[in-house]
């Protein structure tokens, strides 16, 4: 974003060097914890940013109005930003990032500081951008967001890129086994599976290797159980991340012990 400069090397976006200012016409950027001129209203700040994209006055007005509606700030558009909450500022930030319909959108922690409703709205906007064929790159600490939204994920631990790929690929879709959730009739008979199951309320939960699944079904059928769900146990992105962190720590500890 031309905020810091490389000590060496370079980077390209859309085939153009990042030092080329014209490429910024095709990029949208939301900084982490965005701040805007607090003496302006949301409408004014968006209109101001729109001016740098060479839109006509009519175009600007239409775009700004549309964008305010999209991010749910229409009713607050005449209020100065100094009276906005953090979540509202985040929406203004998102609006200014996508106002000019950029091909590439870079969002730094787009969901931080938002309530559950706001997070969902941001998620919807990101998915909409994706549907429109735009590339969205965003950073997050909430790994479930990444898992839910991303086609490709890069994991950075300790400042180093530790893995890039589809979320599934990254975690080597290797099933950890299956989990069955079931309920039993009032007077349960004893059967081998029950010994392995954990009870929560009315429900029983049991984890077993995939190969034993059909045998388990037979036992449950015989006992007259009602199966609520059968799920494949997959590692989450969070587990993948934690494994990397653990590995890092172990390595650091090893280095410390060996005195290197």
């Amino acid at each position: 974003m031309r905020l810091i400069f490389p000590t060496s090397g370079g980077a390209r976006i859309l085939g153009k060097s990042i030092n080329d200012v014209s490429v910024h016409g095709s990029i949208g950027y939301l900084p982490e914890q965005p701040y805007f001129y607090d003496y302006l209203t949301a409408h004014e700040v968006l209109d101001y940013f729109a001016r740098f994209h060479g839109l006509t006055a009519n175009d600007r007005r239409a775009r700004v109005e549309g964008m305010l509606k999209k991010v749910g700030l229409e009713s607050a558009k005449k209020i100065q930003l100094r009276k906005y909450s953090k979540g509202m500022l985040q929406r203004v930030g998102l609006a200014q990032a996508i106002l000019h319909r950029p091909q590439v959108v870079v969002l730094d922690e787009p969901m931080s500081g938002l309530d559950p409703l706001g997070r969902r709205e941001v998620r919807d906007i990101i998915l909409e951008l994706k549907r429109e064929g735009r590339t969205v790159l965003f950073s997050t600490h909430v790994l479930s967001d990444a898992e839910m939204l991303c086609d490709r994920v890069g994991v950075i631990v300790g400042g180093k890129l530790r893995g890039v790929g589809m979320p599934g690929e990254l975690m080597e879709i290797k099933s950890h086994g299956m989990e069955i959730l079931f309920e039993l009739p009032n007077e349960p008979s004893n059967f081998p599976l029950l010994a392995k199951a954990a009870r929560t309320g009315e429900r029983y939960r049991v984890q077993l290797p995939e190969a034993e699944l059909y045998d388990a079904f037979d036992q449950l059928k015989a006992a007259g159980a009602r199966i609520s769900s059968v799920t494949q146990l997959k590692p989450t992105l969070e587990e993948f991340f934690m494994n990397l962190v653990e590995a890092d720590r172990a390595q650091a500890a090893a280095v410390e012990v060996s005195g290197k």
Partner: peptide, 15 residues
């Protein structure tokens, strides 16, 4: 200081 510059410099505008 107020970091208002960050969003602006991401636009097609020279410093």
């Amino acid at each position: 200081d107020k970091r208002t510059l960050y969003s602006l410099l991401a636009k097609p505008v020279h410093r």
